[in-house]
Design a binder for these strands. Structure first.
Lengths: 354, 354
DNA sequence: CTGAAAGCGCTAACAG
DNA sequence: CTGTTAGCGCTTTCAG
């Protein structure tokens, strides 16, 4: 490969291969109706000259931008980065999304948007105009935002909605939060727990409701009551403490608690320690996130593993397939199931020693 | 702001404002020699139409791409994401870099490159040709890679080298690893420690050497010996265990250890626990990274805080300033100092109870 | 199956 | 200070 300081364009390749611009373009884009022998000739020149198409120029010509936007909530994402609480949602998205993009010659750009609906339209419109992405990946709590969805539909941009089960435009992908909550609850029931508390997430996340539903249905299926066993949180540490206090301060306190995310689980763990409630012997605990930290607590927490990387990868694949016209018919919503990883924080309930 | 489904281009703005294309272009790019009244008129139209320049088209016109590439080592980055060990290097880079980019209308794209030099040239050339970034941020262990640097210089692309103190092309930015190691060592010396062990990082990271140097110089300044107190690691957990065993198994075992990164610190902590060596009463421990996890261990670890976000932000600013021609003369290397955060893992040495 | 022409949205260089 | 003229590198027509 010659080391060229100057940019090598499609022209140089065409000249080198002795064909027209157009033929080169066809080869690059794997279009049909080119003789194999031409393809070979062109590709040899491409390799020889070290040619790589300019994304900007491709975009200008009216084709793909080869860019996929991953939309995340600005406030929460930045707060997560700044607090350094170990939430690796963005990393997992990049792991699944960026690598899958790379496989297809696409790039992923992370974009942060305000929840505040006033800004969101302007911001998204700006990002679309500036980048003209081929696809967009929506994440909670924006996955069902009608403003965003309408905008994307209007602009004919493929998109995926992660954490959504609603039919409609765009690919809905879910980790089946309800089922995940059910699995976690069943795990505790199997261990012999009957009073299983649940700390919910905030209402602006649809998945908060699903998780509660899963817990409820598992409890109901086992003939267990849920009265006084639900506490509300907002995914923040402080709210977890409040919820833990409410749950553990009650007369018939639960022998196990499921928290809707890691921070609330950590808060519960800490509150229990302060109160002299030993985990796991006095209280079993499950986190709904398997973020790095929950493996390093004492005890390490049993947790629900959200396959974020896998979902992101799938989302990218669907978007690219749709644009390529190779989209298979997919069942909506696409389910990439969460799993439970059992660690040391869940054991059978001990005889009450209070 | 009108909700236009069709793209609004510079033409529409020009027509709406009753000026030429060029005038609009000048306003967008804040070029001089435009009457304030024209500027006002054009900007009104821009707002009214909700116009946002297309990056692709800007790039085609021969101007900025408004893209900055953040180059990270592929293997290590992916390993970090997959292992979910809580390293938030990429997140912190995004926090500092992406937000600073956004302030200036730029975007940051994370790009992974192979260390293997055979691929690196091809990959980087490809990324440059495809994206035509305005700037590149190099991170260890690539910050002083001559292949990359030459390539960037040839292509006249601004770049910053994070974790480098070497003069030369591109902005060198350092968190002053030597000073950081010195600070950590001094903290231990002040507590009364005399036998302070050090676990180094791998040699392909230049900073590994600096950290050792800082430890050595602080020890020397205090008149303390370092014989038998240095163990080599490779930033991996397993290597930390080996190093801890070497250090703690010796006859005159250290009363304190500084590990060159968090995984090796965690390994040391675990090894100590297994050996019945209590941290901090029998052994003080400092990690060289303040990743999320070290706050959640027992005890939480005293650590050196790498201001990765701040450095990334500075790198972006320098690159943008250089391209804008507003670059101030900067002292090279630019130092963004690390600090030490004291937690529960460091206390004065206890009388030997063995 | 291949080529030639036109234009994507923008900026650089030049005139006025 | 402003407008006009050429492209940038590529893809889409549409002819051969």
């Amino acid at each position: 490969m010659a080391r060229r300081k100057q940019t090598v364009t499609i022209k140089h390749v065409a000249a080198d291969a002795g064909v027209s611009l157009q033929t080169v373009s066809r080869v690059i884009n794997k279009e049909p109706n080119v003789r194999p022998e031409m393809i070979e000739r062109v590709q040899t020149s491409i390799r020889k000259l070290g040619y790589v198409p300019s994304i900007a120029a491709q975009r200008m010509g009216g084709s793909h931008s080869y860019l996929i936007l991953a939309l995340n909530d600005r406030e929460r994402t930045i707060a997560g980065w700044q607090s350094r609480e170990g939430t690796d949602w963005v990393d997992q998205m990049l792991l699944g999304g960026m690598l899958t993009c790379a496989e297809h010659g696409y790039r992923m750009i992370v974009e942060l948007v305000d929840t505040h609906s006033d800004h969101i339209e302007r911001e998204l419109l700006g990002a679309i105009a500036a980048l003209q992405p081929d696809g967009v990946i929506l994440t909670p709590p924006h996955s069902e935002n009608p403003l965003i969805i309408d905008l994307l539909v209007d602009h004919k941009i493929s998109f995926a909605r992660i954490g959504s089960i609603k039919p409609g435009p765009g690919f809905a992908l879910t980790m089946d939060d309800e089922r995940a909550a059910r699995l976690a609850t069943e795990h505790l029931i199997e261990l012999g727990h009957a009073r299983i508390g649940f700390i919910s997430g905030p209402d602006d996340y649809e998945l908060s409701g699903w998780r509660v539903d899963g817990w409820r249905s598992a409890m109901a299926a086992a003939g267990l009551a849920t009265d006084g066993l639900l506490a509300h949180g907002d995914f923040g540490y402080a709210s977890g403490t409040v919820a833990a206090r409410a749950l553990l301060g009650s007369t018939a306190r639960p022998t196990a608690i499921i928290a809707s995310n890691d921070q609330m689980a950590l808060a519960t763990l800490e509150f229990a320690r302060e109160e002299g409630i030993s985990v796991p012997s006095d209280l079993s605990l499950i986190s709904f996130d398997d973020t790095p930290i929950v493996r390093f607590t004492h005890p390490p927490l049993t947790a629900i593993v959200q396959p974020i990387a896998a979902v992101s990868a799938r989302a990218v694949e669907l978007i690219i397939a749709e644009r390529a016209g190779t989209a298979e018919a997919v069942e909506t919503p696409i389910v990439v199931p969460a799993t439970v990883v059992v660690r040391a924080s869940t054991v059978p309930p001990q005889p009450d020693r209070r």
